[in-house]
Amino acid sequence: MVQRRSLLDIVPHFILALGVIIIAFPVYIAFVASTWDAATISNGQMPLWPGPHFLENYYRTIFIGTAKTTREPVGIMMLNSFVMAMCIAIGKIAISLISAFAVVYFRFPFRMAAFWTIFITLMLPVEVRIYPTYKIVADLRLLDTYAGLTIPLIASATATLLFRQFFMTVPDELVEASRIDGAGPMKFFVDTLVPLSITSVAAMFVIQFIYGWNQYLWPLLITTSDNMQTIVIGIKKMIVTQDALTEWQIAMATAVLAMLPPVIVVVAMQKLFVKGLTETEK
């Protein structure tokens, strides 16, 4: 690296600090709003520092919900989001692991056809087939169920590609050693391949958990009953155009709660997150 005098380091520090502040500002404001009462916010004079209503607001948000709009406590919504995110992440990882295993470690007729069938789904995001997919889920009577919420989303070309890529780097000799040690294909998969894939699986989990938690359009279509709402859908329903009805302190507490799990996952598992992101997208 080209070394510079440390006086010049002030410039990058300044730019980065500014970036961090701008990035964090909207979230900070949301947090501040979640600690004031409705009156302080709605008269437009909310201060830039936290207020005294933190516990009260969050208690109400989690266990009671808004008085006027959604009615459902946000705790339930978080539970729904969590179940959805976990089902999607685990489901995607499970079916992609076995698909990649089949494609990499076996030779059989239509192998490449199967691979391309999975691969081409990259070009069919839910946004381009909204209503026909909705109709199928409706026909299967899966509306307002966890199954309808998650199963259509757990096919994953990216996860399959990532695992395929990783399996290709596993030395052939490990398969041979396993065969000599008397392990069949499934035993090799369970005893050796999956334990070796653990970092890739964890990286994939981070990415897919966030993907699942942040789903918006699909749950918007599939869920109608209040007790199936996810938190990301719920918050939208709290904000209505008639300002008088919107309880901003509750909405902002909900926003903070909606961000918390995925942000914690990203920050706590930063290395895995970066690995998962950069490797799946290439």
């Binding site: 961090v20 949301a30 918006y216 942000v263």
Partner: peptide, 29 residues
Amino acid sequence: YKTMLIWPYAVAPAIAGVLWLFMFQPSLG
């Protein structure tokens, strides 16, 4: 700095919308 800059990846687009809406809301933002 890196950690402080990458976390918005985890924020749902709808939530991001709500955060900005609140700051720029005409009457109370």
